[in-house]
């Protein structure tokens, strides 16, 4: 290794100017790996989706793009099934998010008591979160079977006629929502619980001294303290609901979301356009509509929250 001899000794430092330049560059090397990937697999696909949505592109020949202007969008808005999917996404979103968050709040409140075996409770309630969408849906699809499902059997025991959880519009949407609720309630309960535990205990003690009942404490101490957490879970659940896909796809294995598209969500609609009918351009248009929708929803959510906070401070 004669070369090393010629090189400056290890202890020697590069000249000060160079060092400063390097120091200036160095922060970028820390963010470079992330941004390189982000540009290639995050930002580019998103922007390119808008571009693709203006072309006719078929899955079999992704290299051939044919200018279509806004044709994909007008076809989209002219398709009744798109509107069905939009409506379904909304109703399933409400059916899954509202009970999920309400139950999570209740459970969190209970979990916040001094409990024996509290770790067991917490771990058990988080179990569904660890299950994959695929596994959960396959199991629930069976439980919701029309002719041999356990749920219909149980309903039969209390005298309810068998429900067609597959082809009934509301029934199927409830069934699909149930899967979502089952998977996420425990998780949200833990998030709320964490929020509750960071509410200063003195507030409760003060309320107790004032003679407030447990219920009033919940209303006047817990809920206000949790507001940011609740807003956060609402936003995230809304986004989750907007892109719901695996549950409706695997519920019956139907890419159209059931026989009359009764539980087809926008995510599934997009998948059907792209990988069912092979119209990538139209799928891209759907993706952009979803994007705009999500941005709008987030803006509305935060605006509402801001208004409430303002009112609060004004009070």
């Amino acid at each position: 290794m004669t070369l090393t001899a010629a090189a400056p000794p290890r202890t020697a430092r590069p000249p000060a100017l160079l060092r400063r330049r390097l120091a200036k560059l160095s922060p970028y090397t820390y963010i470079a790996p992330f941004f390189a990937l982000f540009a290639a697999f995050g930002l580019f696909p998103l922007l390119y989706t808008a571009y693709v949505s203006l072309y006719r592109v078929e899955l079999q020949t992704p290299g051939q793009m044919q200018w279509r202007g806004l044709g994909n969008y007008s076809a989209l808005f002219g398709d009744d099934y798109f509107w069905t999917a939009l409506r379904n996404t909304f109703t399933i979103g409400v059916l899954s998010t509202v009970p999920q968050l309400m139950m999570a709040l209740g459970l969190a409140h209970l979990l916040n008591y001094k409990l024996r075996g509290r770790t067991v409770f917490r771990v058990t309630m988080l179990l569904p979160y660890a299950t994959s969408v695929a596994a959960a849906t396959l199991v629930f699809a069976q439980l919701f079977g029309r002719d041999f499902g356990l749920i219909n059997y149980l309903l039969g025991l209390v005298g309810v006629q068998p429900v067609d959880w597959q082809s009934g519009t509301l029934a199927s949407q409830i069934a699909v929502s149930t899967i979502v609720v089952w998977r996420w309630t425990g998780y949200n309960a833990l998030i709320y619980l964490a929020g509750m535990q960071s509410i200063p205990a003195e507030l409760y003690e003060a309320a107790e001294l004032d003679g407030a009942s447990r219920w009033r404490q919940f209303l006047h101490v817990t809920l206000p303290g949790l507001r940011p957490t609740i807003l956060f879970t609402v936003v995230v659940s809304t986004i989750g609901a907007t892109q719901l896909f695996g549950e409706p796809l695997l519920f019956e294995g139907s890419i159209s979301g059931g026989i009359s598209h009764q539980y087809q969500t926008l995510g599934l609609y997009m998948y059907e356009q792209g990988w069912g009918f092979f119209h990538l351009g139209r799928a891209a248009a759907t993706a952009w509509v979803m994007f705009v929708l999500i941005v709008l929803l987030v803006l509305v959510n935060t605006a509402l929250a801001r208004r409430r906070t303002r009112k609060e401070t004004a009070r």
Partner: peptide
């Protein structure tokens, strides 16, 4: 970074597929 955090990556699958196919 924060701004794109909320955007489901699902929305980019079409170009992603075109790239991966290529």
């Amino acid at each position: 970074t924060i701004g794109t955090m909320m955007i489901p990556p699902q929305l980019g699958v079409i170009p992603l597929f075109m790239v991966v196919a290529k």
